[in-house]
Structure formats: C-alpha cells, structure tokens
Simulated scan of single mutants.
Amino acid sequence: MDIYDVLLRDFPFLLKGLGVALVLLAALLALGFVIGLTICLIQLYGPRTRFVQWPLKVYERIFRGVPIIIMLFIFYYGLAGIFDISSFAAAILALGFRSGAYQSQIFRSAFQSIPAGQMTAARASGMTLTQAIRWILFPQAIRHAIGPWTNEFSSEIKETSLAYVIGVVELTRQAHYIITSTQGNVLTVFAVVALLYFIVNKAGNSGLYWLEARLAVPGFEKRQ
C-alpha cells in the first residue's frame, strides 16, 4: 500500500494522538499555573524566613535543571512503586511541576513590573494584602505575563512529545505505530507530525497574542 494511502487511512489515529497531546498540554499548563503563581506570591509577599523561601528556590533549581525525560522516568517508574499511577498522570505531574518552576519566574517578573506605589496606595486605602493582590496587582500581572507565557506554551507543546517514552499514546507514539506498520516512511510520517505540531503552536500563540491585544490598556506598551 502506498504511504499516502496509509497516511489517509491512519490520519484519524494521528488526530487522536494530537487530542491526547492537547489534553496533556492543558492539564500540565493548568497545574503549572497554580504552582507557579503560588510560588511567586509566597516569594514576593510571603514570610521572608529561609525556612519558607529556601525550599522554593530548591524546587525551582531542581525542576529547571534536571532534563525533563529524567523527570518523566522518576515520576512514572519511581512513583509506580508507591502509588498506582498511570503514565498519563505521571506525565502531567512531571511536566506540570517543571512548568510551574518556569511559570513562577514569568509571574514574578510580571508582578515586579508593577510600580511598588500601587501596593502602598492600596494598603493606605484600607485594603488587606490579599485584597490588594487580587484586585490591584493580579489583573495587571496577568496582562504582563501573557507575552512571556507564549514561550512557555510553545515549549510545553513540544515537550508533550517526550511523554511517549513512558507509554503515553500521544501524537509521536501514534506516528511510531504507523512507521512500524509500514516498515519505513519515517520522513513522510514525521513531516505530517511536524506540521500538526506547527499548526497547534501557531494557533495557540495567535490566540494568546489576540488575548493580549484585547486586554491591553490604552496608553500602555503593546506588542507590534
């Protein structure tokens, strides 16, 4: 059978694998968002004691310094001996915790870009620290973080392809199945896979740029 006939026949399987990759991407980014924002807020507005700040720095250094493929093995094969965990859940945890380390840097830069006088004014008007963060700083920080967050989106959509090493049947593994069944045609199959990743990456970044433009405040710097 011609490779193009095979691709036409097996294309739904590639789309299924792409769907798994997108669900994985959404889950890990959501987990990373919660972790990253929490770390950022504790580092900037939490207790300044070394017993609070030092573990957060260690967390960031570890998850930013260890290759993600090693993290995938640790979370899957390491936790499997303690908990009954699926490969998909292990991938979410490994990629999500790593994303959290990077997103904490994004959010910290975003909060620090807001003039300190705004917090002072909010507290002087009677707001609590939580109220000032929620109503004054957070809306601004989110707008500032969208630009750098596009890089995190692009990085993570590509790193979902590494989840196949622990058995997650996402787009890359589906491509391997097709190559194995056709005994070759590596270039053609992975060219299609590359195109799918490119489309998702482009669509995601375009959506974030649109959101950034929609949330932009007149008078402030905008992306050209």
Rank of each mutant, 00 (worst) to 15 (best):
Y76L: 06
R50H: 13
I3F: 04
T120L: 11
G81Y: 09
F88M: 06
T182M: 05
L195K: 08
L56N: 10
V52W: 10
I146T: 04
T188E: 15
P218I: 01
T120A: 13
Q103G: 04
F63W: 02
I70F: 15
I74C: 13
K158E: 10
I142H: 08
Q174E: 15
L8E: 02
Q103M: 12
L137E: 06
L22F: 11
G147T: 09
I133A: 08
L56K: 08
I70A: 15
G204E: 00
L25E: 05
L18K: 09
D2V: 00
L44D: 13
I166D: 15
F198Y: 14
Y76T: 03
P55H: 11
F11R: 01
L171N: 08
W135Q: 13
M119K: 03
Y76I: 01
T49I: 11
I68Q: 13
L162E: 06
R98P: 00
E156Q: 14
L14T: 00
T160C: 06
I68D: 13
T130P: 03
I35A: 08
G184Y: 04
E159D: 15
V23T: 10
I70L: 15
T120G: 15
G117W: 01
G184H: 05
T188G: 02
F107V: 01
L15G: 06
L8R: 02
V200M: 14
S99N: 14
W149I: 02
A132R: 00
I179H: 05
A30M: 07
P148A: 12
Q112G: 01
L31F: 11
F73Y: 15
W210T: 13
Y197H: 12
R61A: 12
R223E: 11
A163L: 02
D10T: 00
L25A: 04
A101F: 02
V189D: 07
G117S: 02
A110F: 04
N151K: 08
E60N: 06
G19M: 10
L41E: 07
M1N: 06
A145H: 08
I62K: 13
P55N: 12
Q174A: 10
Y4T: 01
Y197C: 11
V189R: 02
L44F: 13
A21S: 15
A124K: 06
T49E: 15
T160I: 04
T172P: 07
R9E: 14
P12E: 07
L25F: 04
A21Y: 07
A163V: 02
F73H: 11
A132Q: 01
A145K: 05
R173K: 13
E156A: 12
I199G: 04
Y177T: 03
F107Q: 01
M127P: 02
V200Y: 10
G126C: 06
S104E: 05
D5W: 01
Q105M: 02
A121C: 10
F107M: 03
R61S: 13
N151P: 08
P139A: 11
I3Y: 05
L195S: 14
A191T: 11
S87M: 04
K16W: 09
N201I: 03
L72G: 12
P148V: 05
S87F: 04
L215I: 07
A132W: 01
I70K: 14
F63R: 01
I136K: 09
